[in-house]
Every structure is written in C-alpha cells, then in structure tokens.
C-alpha cells in the first residue's frame, strides 16, 4: 500500500532571472514501512521534495497523496492537524524549543494533539528512556550534545505515532560516530514498527542504511541510482 504517492509534481521558485524549476513532473511511490533515502547534489531539490511531502509547502501542480489523503485538498488548519498526527519531522538543526526540557519537547506534539498532561509526559519519558536519554529528561536542549538533541528530536517526531517520519539531512550537523548512532536508531525503529522513513542526505555512509535509494537530478527521481556507490555490509536491510 502506498503511503507516499506523488504524481507529476512540479515545483518552481522565482529566482533572479526567471523561474527555477526544481521538481519537473516528479513521480514517487513509497510503500508502508519503507526506509528510503533521497540523495542528490546540493540544490537538486531534496529539501523541496521533503517539504512538499510533509505539507510544509504546496506544489505548483501535480498530486501528493499521503496515506490516501490528498494534501492539496486540506485547508491550512487541517494540514497542520494532519502533520501533527501523521507525519514526524526530523531536521538537520534539530529545531527543539530551547526553553522546554527534553521531555516537554517530546510531549509538545501530544499537547497540540490534545492528549492530557499525565499521559503525554509518560509517553515522552518512555520514548526518551528507550533512546538512552533517561538521565537527560529534564534538561533543556542547550545542556545536551548534538547527538542527544537529535535523539530528542526523533523522539518528538515519533510522539504522536506517525505513519511517516521525514528527515532532511538528519546527520549533517553530527560527527561520524554520532551519525552512525542516529542511523542505527532510525533503522531499529523502522524494523520494530511499520513507520515509513524517508530521509535525505549527502553522506554515502548514511545513505547506505536505506532499503530503497532514490536519486534526485534535474528535477526527476531516479530509482536505485546510487546503489553502485554503497559499500556493502552496513545498511538496514
């Protein structure tokens, strides 16, 4: 069953001397519980693609269906609720709320959803403990390392038990060792649950974790294009 379905999606930006067409009639079909990576040169449109799938931006034309729901049909507030319940976001620069503790950050999507305080704090603690952050639950992000912050962010992305987790270069701000830890974590999460993961990266090591490889070039997605570059042995398969 398709969880992410794109048909002839076009997206362009107004740039200095005319339109810059980033996505040109792009198609994509990602099934439930997939673990997919989008690679591609800088400026190829990876972030643009993930933002469209996440409902953070709207395409010029084409169809985007997430879990059977056509995003363009949703009003702004419905889209927000949809993001809250169906999609988890992990960002390159974590984007945690600095004045909230780790647990409160994780609980915030549940607050938006309307879960009561006791239950959401319980869930936040449980997630953070599973991620090896039991002793950091009440710390604010500035007291945590980059890797710890990203784990908090992943916990936040999973708080509402989404269908999809979108991660735009989740390891770009982390060192090699921490990147491996983060990818191991995402990988194990994907194995344990049927959550669909779609992430973008520049890093071949990181890309090699994916079950499915997509390459974005000239506004088109090409399947398996980077397979040749992956060193065997690591990966989530």
């Amino acid at each position: 069953m398709s969880v992410i379905l794109l048909k002839s999606v076009c997206k362009s930006y107004l740039s200095g001397d005319g339109r810059l067409h980033v996505l040109k009639q792009t198609d994509l079909d990602i099934k439930k519980a997939d673990f997919a990576v989008v690679a591609g040169p800088s400026g190829s449109g990876k972030s643009t693609l993930l933002n469209l799938i996440g409902g953070l931006d709207r395409p010029d034309s084409g169809l985007i269906e997430i879990d059977g729901v056509e995003l363009s049909r949703l009003t702004d507030s419905k889209q927000a609720a949809f993001r809250n319940q169906k999609i988890g976001f992990v960002f390159q620069s974590f984007h945690l709320i600095p004045v909230l503790t780790a647990a409160e950050n994780v609980a915030w999507p549940l607050y938006i959803k309307g879960v009561n305080r006791k239950q959401r704090m319980l869930r936040a603690r449980e997630l953070l403990s599973n991620f090896g952050l039991a002793t950091h639950i009440d710390k604010q992000p500035d007291k945590l390392s980059g890797g710890q912050c990203q784990r908090v962010a992943i916990a936040r992305a999973l708080a509402c038990e989404p269908q999809i987790v979108l991660a735009d270069e989740p390891t770009a701000n982390l060192d090699h060792k921490t990147s491996v830890e983060i990818m191991d974590l995402l990988c194990s999460l994907n194995k344990e649950s049927d959550v669909t993961f779609l992430f973008s990266t520049h890093d071949q090591m990181v890309a090699s974790y994916a079950k499915r490889h997509l390459y974005l070039e000239d506004g088109k997605l090409i399947e398996n294009a980077v397979d040749a570059h992956i060193d065997e042995g690591v990966g989530c398969v």
Binding site: D76, A80, F82, R83, F91, H95, I97
Partner: peptide
C-alpha cells in the same frame, strides 16, 4: 522565527 517554523511543522495551529 525558526522556533515558530518548528512548532508549525509539528502541527501547531496558527491560533496557538
């Protein structure tokens, strides 16, 4: 601004 963006991304409605 970036926090506002993050809050909106994780589904905070405008009114929040």
């Amino acid at each position: 601004t970036s926090e506002i963006g993050a809050l909106r991304a994780i589904g905070a409605p405008r009114i929040m």
